[in-house]
Amino acid sequence: MQMPARRESLHPIQEFVLKEASVRGMPGDVLQKIELVLEEVLLNIINYAYPETDSGEVQTGCREQDSGDFQIRIMDHGAPFDPLKRPDPDTGRPVQHREVGGLGIHLVKNMADRVEYTRQDGRNILDIVFNAVSSPGHKPAHKDASTSN
C-alpha cells in the first residue's frame, strides 16, 4: 500500500494492516500493539523523512510468515535513518528531568517481537515482526495450529 507521507495517511494504513492481521487470527492484545507500532513508526516518517519536500511517499506491506508470525514492512525514500540506532531514553529519570524524545521508538522496540532495519536501493526498510502468540500467559486455541498452504 503506497500513500503520501502525510498525517491523513496514518489511519488508512493502520486500518489496512489491522484488517490483515485480524484476518490472520492475531489476538486483540497484539492488534493493539500493531496499532501503536504503526502510529509511532509512520509518524516518524511523516514528520521527519522528507524535510525538504512535501511529496514523499510511505509504502506499507504485511504478510504472514510460514511460521505464522505476522510481518509488517514499512519503506520510505527519505535520508538514511536507522531508528534502532537512536539511544534509548533514560526511563529512570524523575518527572522534572524526563525528556519526551525517543519514547516512540523505545515503545516500538519493546512492543514488537523483532525489528530490523535495512537501507537498500535508496530506501529505508523497517521490518517489524509479531510472533503468532506473543504475550506471556496467552494460550493459543490450538497448540499445533497448522500453517499449511
Partner: peptide
C-alpha cells in the same frame, strides 16, 4: 489496564509517577 499499563511500564512512567 491492558496496553495502557504496559506502555506505562515500558516507558518508565510507572516508576516516575
Amino acid at each position: 489496564r491492558g496496553m495502557v499499563k504496559e506502555v506505562f511500564e515500558i516507558s518508565g512512567f510507572a516508576s516516575i509517577f
